[in-house]
Amino acid sequence: MGTRCGIRWTAVALLAALTSGAAPVVTVAQDTENPYISRLDVRAGRQLFQARCSTCHGLNAAGGNESTGPDLTTGRFRHADSDAGLFRVIRDGVRSTAMLGLGADADEQSIWQLVTYLRSVDVTAGGTPTGSAAAGRQLFTGTGGCDRCHMVNGQGQRLGPDLSTVGERRALAELETALVNPDAEVLPRWWTMKATGPDGQVVEGLRMDEDTFTFRIMDADQQLRAFSKYGGWTWERVQRSTMPGYADTFTAAERNDLVAYLFSLRSEP
């Protein structure tokens, strides 16, 4: 849940940018974009939501058997089609229903933070894929040779992250970026450590862990090796990705298929 929320964030920001471009017709909050869209605001919004709204909409805004308010995580709202529209609903409520709204005196910051929170729990936030997952799967193990490095449900190799549930962790845009620009975000776990021994021998591998006195790597043969930093070896961190970029290898359509396949990789069907 924690990671999911954090990673979703990019998608929320993207979406917020998109919706604000759609020129909302409502005349609230000066038709501005939501100014409170950081993770901090997601947290603040969640707190507010749990205190003021959860009795009717459920603790995680998904509605539920006991609750009288609708599920707010579907990405579609009957009474709003933009951030500004949501702002209005939260402030003014929905006429003649239990949804009273916070009122004209409520401060704008809190309302925007609630909007930001609702965007963060939108299960469709990152969009849905257009490519063919089946075709993507073929590419993954065929021409793509992705399984030289990646494992999916126990099949493949260990030189990249296990992708069995990557569809839960990453939005579409992030999956596309992972393919065309692997260096965009390389987690420290996937940095390379280059160690040079006292006799000049060089050993290289993926940085599995590092601390003040030691580090541990997986070399190209997928052997685990442990080093002492003060035992005569010198070392160097390489913070680039070892994954090749696929912008030129695959057409946009093929990449869409790959992304659709990756997006389908989830623990729950």
Partner: peptide, 28 residues
């Protein structure tokens, strides 16, 4: 990254007026 927010003082409640985020993993 330091964020500033409006916050009203309520006795016994958190009163920080914002928050922070670290942009990169700690290893950087």
């Amino acid at each position: 990254i330091f964020f500033s927010r409006d916050e009203d003082y309520q006795e016994g409640d958190n009163f920080t007026g914002g928050g922070t985020e670290t942009p990169l993993p700690i290893e950087h």
